[in-house]
């Protein structure tokens, strides 16, 4: 009986101690924000890596999502003769949901995984120990700049995704499906509010925090050589994506 309980209980205990450690890392990295020295150089490097290098992927993702979305919603609205509503739906969908979620998932796959691989490699090759031995805190040196960069960069990437999605939707709606241009734009302006954009922005800030924190957490807890790094990287992407979707639900439920 004890054995059965142990087998069933172990994953839950691991999860509990895991999320405790995850939360502690979050607290620690935030505390380091307010304690000198501040790592400007590291921050800019990470903004470039997480942000600037993701722009092309985000442009592609945003544009194609907007285009597909226009096609799909057209099928429905056309049946009711409400073709011009396509712009509204694309705008709302991109701003509130698809922009933040898809850009965050793309960045988790691209940069979150790379963060885990980099920090994980440093862990298994004792570079993290070396930082400790040189009296430099790895959380301050590695984690804080990445999390801050994620917070700064994700809303910007989200804006790009939303903009590209709306442009892509317009292209498909007006140029390909021949929806009336004036009506398309008029209904879009009328029903898409600034508050919809804000909602999406708040989401993307939270997602930026989540994916960098998961990336760092999985990296800092990597064990077992090159194989361990590979495993941690995969786990990092999966966990980040799951958390993004879960928090998307929570935030949506709260904000709407």
């Amino acid at each position: 009986m004890d054995k059965i309980l142990t087998i069933i209980g172990a994953p839950f205990l691991n999860m509990a101690s895991g999320s405790g450690k995850f939360f502690l890392l979050f607290i620690e990295s935030i505390v380091w924000l307010f304690r000198p020295p501040f790592r400007w150089k590291q921050l800019f490097k990470q903004i470039e890596f997480i942000g600037a290098n993701s722009i092309s992927v985000i442009i592609l993702t945003g544009t194609f999502t907007g285009m597909v979305f226009a096609f799909q919603s057209y099928i429905g609205f056309h049946k009711f003769g409400a073709d011009y509503m396509v712009g509204t739906v694309v705008g709302l969908g991109m701003a509130r949901e698809l922009g933040p979620v898809l850009s965050a998932i793309m960045v988790a796959a691209r940069a979150g995984s790379a963060i885990t691989a980099e920090i994980g490699t440093m862990k298994v090759t004792e570079q993290i120990d070396a930082l400790h031995s040189l009296a430099v805190d790895p959380v301050q040196y590695l984690v804080t700049p990445r999390i801050l960069a994620g917070l700064i960069v994700m809303p910007l990437l989200n804006s790009i995704a939303v903009f590209c999605g709306v442009v892509g939707g317009y292209f498909v709606g007006v140029k390909i499906l021949d929806i009336n241009k004036t009506l398309y734009l008029q209904y879009m302006y009328q029903y898409v509010d600034l508050s919809d954009l804000y909602n999406g922005m708040i989401k993307s800030i939270v997602f930026g925090l989540l994916l960098t924190l998961v990336g760092c957490y999985k990296g800092m807890n990597t064990e077992g050589g090159a194989e361990g790094v590979g495993k941690a990287t995969t786990e990092s992407v999966v966990l980040a994506c799951v958390l993004i979707l879960v928090f998307d639900y929570i935030l949506t439920a709260f904000m709407f």
């Binding site: 980099e118 490699t121 440093m122 090759t125 004792e126 570079q127 120990d129 070396a130 400790h132 031995s133 040189l134 009296a135 805190d137």
Partner: peptide, 20 residues
């Protein structure tokens, strides 16, 4: 602990250089 570590220098078995 951080202050105590400032008294030390350490050469790791595999050097543990920062590879970036």
């Amino acid at each position: 602990l951080v202050n105590i570590r400032k008294k030390f220098g350490m050469l790791f078995q595999n050097a543990a250089l920062f590879d970036s």
